[in-house]
Design a protein around this nucleic acid. Structure first.
Length: 195
DNA sequence: AATTCACCCAACCGCCTACAC
DNA sequence: TGTGTAGGCGGTTGGGTGAAT
């Protein structure tokens, strides 16, 4: 088997498939004691034959408290659509504005429900300027902010070269996750009106 | 009843950056 | 300062399930 293209953790891991109730219990207990960090250590402590990445994903997408289960509401769907129009496939950012929802859930919902509803508009969605790296949520770079700003301008102006945006979009405010509007989607959305 | 198809979603994969040493 | 590892992200895969034929 050729593992040359895999990262270090993937090489060591076997594919374990679905998590069992017992694995979930062990993981949750380890996290309660040691916290939701140092995932490799957590995996070892819990006695799981899973890599740290897999433990993290399981915790964030399934075991974590306050996860909202059930159907996406119309309000949530509207928010997803608006945010996606603004920033594209930035699922973790979008999830950050949907309390209780995970990036994976939103991504799946988009791919299975919303993508078919949306017609591509001039190919401007999801694009990333040449040479710009894939985003990382930990450290949002200046370039990344400008990227989001460019996309937002496209959305607002229709993508025309040299056009001034008709609606002001403050990227710094957008990335401010202080959650001051988190409890009220409409209030928060009104901060970033989209034409 | 058996088979095929489509959809959903949990889990995996690979890339990237941050960070520890 | 350089290198290896850990963590985070978006993209993709594949198993389960229900509908259609």
């Amino acid at each position: 088997m050729d593992f040359s293209g895999m990262d270090s953790q993937t090489k060591k891991r076997s594919n374990n498939g679905a998590w069992t109730v017992e694995e979930d219990r062990k993981l949750a207990e380890a996290i309660v004691v040691h916290g939701a960090r140092r995932w490799k250590k957590i995996a070892n402590i819990a006695g799981l034959s899973r890599c740290g990445k897999s433990c993290r994903l399981r915790w964030l997408n399934y075991l974590r408290p306050n996860i909202k289960r059930g159907n996406i509401s119309d309000q949530e769907e509207d928010l997803i659509l608006r945010l996606h129009k603004l920033i594209g496939n930035r699922w973790s950012l979008i999830a950050g504005r949907l309390p209780g929802r995970t990036d994976n859930e939103i991504k799946n919902y988009w791919n299975s429900h919303l993508r078919k509803k949306i017609k591509p508009q001039n190919g401007i969605r999801n694009r990333r300027p040449e040479g710009l790296q894939k985003p990382n949520s930990v450290a949002r770079t200046t370039e990344e902010k400008f990227d989001a700003e460019a996309v937002a301008k496209d959305v607002i102006t229709g993508g025309g070269e040299g056009q001034e945006p008709t609606t002001f979009f403050n990227v710094d405010e957008f990335y401010d996750l202080s959650m001051q509007y988190r409890s009220d989607f409409d209030d928060w959305l009104n901060v970033f009106p989209v034409k």
